[in-house]
Amino acid sequence: MSKRTMTLNLSPAEMDAIEELCEKKQLTKTALLRQCLRLYQVIEARIDAGEKIFFEDKKKAKSELMLL
């Protein structure tokens, strides 16, 4: 698979968030961003198809995730 490179301009807070997530998920920055992208694409595709996304708490109460 051919790959292309891009440069990102991020704030220190955004960079910190990436580094924290990389450590938590044991992923490289590239792998983390690829994971973010595929999750984002899956969510968008399901919303576009008319589905709804819910979070469920420990008591099984559901709250809809509103994507505007």
């Binding site: 992208l37 595929r38 694409q41 899956v42 595709a45 399901r46 576009d48 198809a49």
Partner: peptide, 9 residues
């Protein structure tokens, strides 16, 4: 079809 809609996933 779901793969075509979100191929990265």
């Amino acid at each position: 079809l779901r793969e075509h809609r979100a191929p990265l996933g």
